[in-house]
Nucleic acid binder design. Structure first.
Lengths: 216, 216
DNA sequence: TGTACATCAGTGAACGCGCGTTCACTGATGTAC
DNA sequence: TGTACATCAGTGAACGCGCGTTCACTGATGTAC
């Protein structure tokens, strides 16, 4: 619980710590949207946490959708940058390890990100779907499936694989513990922290490379 | 678009097709909640699709949460029954194939189910979280991790596996294409139908059993 | 068999609340002279 | 250097809308006599 600053009259505030209001709004919104969902979160709640007036949302972001868009863009930046870096490394081999490591690295540090993406992705009629779909199609699709395709052609991966199905399998097996943590965390007894991230990354790389069956 | 029946005056309606109003409400609600999210769906929209008055929601389900609970319970019934049947079969071996086949069989026919579960699971403060968590803890947890644990102990699966992480990996890799279909379907070029279900099941079983790497 | 009536599935108009959004205003800051 | 003023980050009260929910009623059905 953040204590609201004692006296905040009208008029232009002192310049110290002023331009951070926008950033506080974005981070409070990421927190609330990812926990409660976009529609169920009120701007009043976000503004309260950011120690700011609800009118500031219109001031900075036009409207509630604009605030969500700012959150989404920030998250996509994180994701695209990490994946691009992981796949662009010149070294051969270990493609699965690099991809899984990069992806889990980002979402282990920012669990709000996959939660917001999934919600946004589920909502059929949101105009922001276009924004996401366009950025995803432009920045991720030319990167990941072709990299998998090359690894398949090179025999690093099984030659009977469908790259598109494989991308979805990898993302799905990485993301579920982070999306479901609010329910499954208490039930299965885990918390999202660096230790869990390391353990789950090792588990996932082994599963993706060799599968689950024993007696190899 | 369902055409509303022409004349529907007040008073007790003719008994034909009358008790189905409740079922129509549940199925319309499953459709809307899974597509637009719980908070973003209005009871008026659901009632319109079910060709029924919004007041009927209160009549049958007490309130909006009660309607969601009815949808959730119906979905959990489907899921629990399929998993229980798959794991209870007396035959040995092929545990992964049976689990994945049962799970994908249900969600390929009812894609609304994982979407609603994920949304409900993400929302931190929903009272229905308790309902889901209790049923899940009571009916699924005693079933799946122990079955995996037995397979690990028997050497059917790798002996270094953590059953809890393994459950999450399996569910995640199965569920993602269904959750993300509204966005990824058009981008990757797939639709959810029996053909996709069969193809994705084969792909997922192979991945879970043997992994992705080539040159075996 | 005919009739009076209790039942209860369902109506539809209205309610109040909380939401996103608007807008006339404020006053410290930075600048021009 | 001192002063007048344009700028603009931010306020806060108010607006209207659409939501979930309520409730006094309705009238076909099934039943008792």
């Amino acid at each position: 619980m953040r204590k609201s600053s004692k006296a905040r009259g009208p008029g232009r505030p002192s310049s110290v710590a002023s331009l951070q209001a926008r950033e506080r709004l974005v981070s409070a919104a990421a927190e609330h949207f990812s926990r409660n969902g976009f529609a169920a979160t009120s701007l009043r709640a976000i503004a309260r946490e950011a120690d700011v007036t609800p009118a500031m949302v219109a001031y900075y972001f036009q409207d509630k959708e604009g605030l969500l868009q700012a959150v989404l863009e920030a998250g996509l930046d994180l994701l695209v940058q990490a994946i691009r870096q992981a796949l662009a490394e010149p070294c051969e081999g270990a493609l699965l390890e690099r991809f899984i490591g990069a992806y889990l690295g980002v979402i282990n540090a920012h669990a709000w990100l996959p939660r917001i993406l999934i919600q946004e992705v589920i909502a059929r009629d949101s105009p922001l779907r276009q924004v996401f779909a366009r950025r995803f199609a432009a920045e991720m699709l030319p990167l990941v499936p072709p990299a998998l395709g090359r690894a398949i052609a090179a025999g690093e991966l099984r030659t009977d694989l469908d790259p598109r199905l494989t991308v979805m399998s990898l993302v799905g097996m990485c993301v579920l513990p982070y999306i479901a943590e609010p329910v499954l965390g208490p039930l299965l007894g885990y918390r999202i922290d660096p230790e869990f991230g390391a353990q789950f990354t090792a588990h996932t790389v082994a599963l993706a490379c060799h599968g689950l069956e024993g007696e190899r």
